[in-house]
């Protein structure tokens, strides 16, 4: 039953652009799916492995800027530049992991926060390559996307929507497969306790490195999509604020769950878009929300749902026992 929910959801979502909704609605949809991919990347580390990396916006930036620079300055096709961006983000993740995993727990988070800031600084200062403060302007939509959209009776915005949907579906598929594999189980063992995992025969260092690469590759995937969709890149989006915002999405949705990253992103992103008054107070509200979530609902929306479902049969079993006695 639950195996059918995800495909059904994606098929339903794929029908949306054919109903000719407003451009605004499609834009919100693309943004939600794009940021959800980044949230899935963060979830691999924080939700499954139990480590809090704070450089994810940086890797998002590496993916975005690689895609942007290769298409704008080197004249590559987007379809080649995007994978290159993903590969570079994963490689950078590997390099960071090689050093950062020498530290444990808290120091790891602090260290990655520092690296995130370095990435943003480098992007901001390296004028010749990244355009510095002015950023990169005029990144073209993927070649052929407009023609392909027209062929199925959609505008370019509809094409972008479907591209984002495909990206999201691929992400969910990869994460779900990874989670179910022995690799995913090893990550959960690491989350439960590194020493215990090691004594059970899990190669902790290698698995953490792999998780990091998967996580940063997903960040790069989201970044490349962002570059071509928005068409403009500035260094601000690669900074800690983006990491924190995505962290909030993830916490609201539910750490370590498959539905959580999408749920949280959809809810918080659409809330900030619809409640215009909220935008001025956005972070004044988000900050305490983050605190309240970890204190009272650390498993987020998806956690509430599982708890409700878990409670129901338990209660039923209890009543049976009572009546049996």
């Amino acid at each position: 039953m639950s195996r059918l929910i995800w495909p059904a959801l994606f098929v339903l979502a794929a029908v949306v652009p054919f109903l000719h909704p407003s451009g605004y609605l499609l834009d919100v949809g693309v943004n939600i799916m794009m940021w959800a991919v980044l949230a899935y990347g963060l979830n691999v580390m924080l939700g499954y492995t139990g480590l809090l990396p704070l450089a994810h916006a940086g890797f998002f930036g590496i993916g975005a800027y690689t895609t942007g620079i290769l298409t704008l300055k080197a004249g590559w096709s987007f379809w080649l530049a995007w994978p290159a961006g993903i590969a570079l983000a994963a490689l950078a993740g590997l390099l960071l992991g090689l050093v950062a995993f020498r530290t444990r727990g808290d120091a790891f988070s602090i260290f990655t926060l520092g690296v995130g800031v370095i990435i943003t600084l480098v992007i901001n200062k390296w004028d010749a390559l990244t355009g510095g403060n002015d950023g990169l302007n005029g990144i073209a939509p993927p070649a052929g996307l407009e023609e392909a959209s027209r062929a199925i009776g959609l505008k370019l915005s509809g094409g972008f929507y479907l591209l984002a949907l495909l990206t999201l579906a691929l992400t969910v598929l990869i994460v779900a497969r990874a989670r179910a594999s022995s690799f995913g189980l090893s990550l959960l063992a690491i989350r439960g306790g590194e020493d215990l995992a090691r004594s059970a025969g899990v190669n902790v260092y290698t698995h953490k490195l792999r998780a990091m690469m998967l996580s940063t590759a997903l960040a790069g995937l989201a970044g490349g999509l962002y570059a071509t969709y928005v068409g403009f890149l500035g260094s601000a989006v690669t900074g800690p604020t983006t990491t924190f915002t995505v962290l909030l999405y993830l916490l609201v949705g539910g750490l370590g769950t498959l539905a959580g990253p999408l749920l949280g992103t959809a809810l918080i992103y659409s809330l900030t878009q619809t409640l215009k008054g909220l935008q001025d107070y956005q972070y004044i509200v988000f900050g305490p929300l983050l605190v309240l979530l970890v204190m009272y609902a650390p498993h987020g929306l998806a956690g509430l749902w599982t708890r409700l479902r878990a409670n129901r049969p338990a209660r039923a079993a209890k009543t049976k026992e009572v009546s049996g006695a």
């Binding site: 924190f244 962290l247 004044i284 900050g287 929300l289 983050l290 605190v291 970890v294 204190m295 650390p298």
Partner: peptide
């Protein structure tokens, strides 16, 4: 709580103060 929780809460406080 798991050690990432107080870290996240602290980030929330930082966000709040700055905003």
């Amino acid at each position: 709580a798991p050690h990432v929780h107080p870290m996240i809460a602290a980030i929330g406080v930082l966000f709040f103060l700055e905003a």
